[in-house]
Amino acid sequence: MTRIGAGPPYDSARPGAVWSQATDGFNRWVAGDPAGLDDLVSVMTPVLWHVVRAYRLSEQAAEDVIQTTWLALVRRRAAIVDPVAVGGWLTTTARREAWRVSSAGSSRATPVDDEDLAPMLPRQRSAEESVLQEDEGNRIWAAVDGLPERCRRLLRIVAFENRPDYRELATELGMPVGSIGPTRGRCLAKLRVALMQAGGV
């Protein structure tokens, strides 16, 4: 399993800790401690990765979006008046950029297909790794992966973000604002059924 080597790993059991760690890092950076920025990047980059990858961007395009997001933070630091909001500011900025890039099509961001680049990648991931995972892990993954695209994206974003902006999500998913909450409920119900059918959990 490839895990990030630097910084604290994302804690699935206590996702709320991420946001307070982000705020703490931001506060120390603003106070003049460069290590605060390092910590902020370390704790939030994994969250940004999962949010951005929900938009079906290639790995390279996702990395570019995340880099753009961090540059935006450094340049527009003054825009973040409330340090508690830094995590949400980052995920919102990253989602807007990911949405913009994915809407613009692949011509600019990724002129080369992932398939063509795959042989050059230094690491083998995803499908190959899941084969090695225990059977239960495979079945749970199949349940999540088998959800309709809209549910896959919505649940991935909701799972990693603190409080996503429903208005923007609705635009991106082509849905009325008021239907995001009910749709999330239906997607969770679909997942619950899929997990039961898979005999997992």
Binding site: M1, T2, R3, I4, G5, A6, G7, Y10, S12, A13, P15, L37, D38, V41, S42, T45, P46, W49, H50, R53, E59, E63, I66, Q67, W70, R123, R125, S126, E129, S130, Q133, G137, I140, W141, V144, D145, L155, R156, V158, A159, F160, L188, L191, R192, L195, V201
Partner: peptide
């Protein structure tokens, strides 16, 4: 359920190893 979703994505589409260092 959301914890399960986080867990499977972390396992099946992990953050590239170099990414945090590069972004720092």
């Amino acid at each position: 359920l959301l914890a399960i979703v986080r867990d499977v994505w972390e396992k099946n589409d992990p953050v590239p190893e170099h990414l945090v260092t590069a972004m720092q």
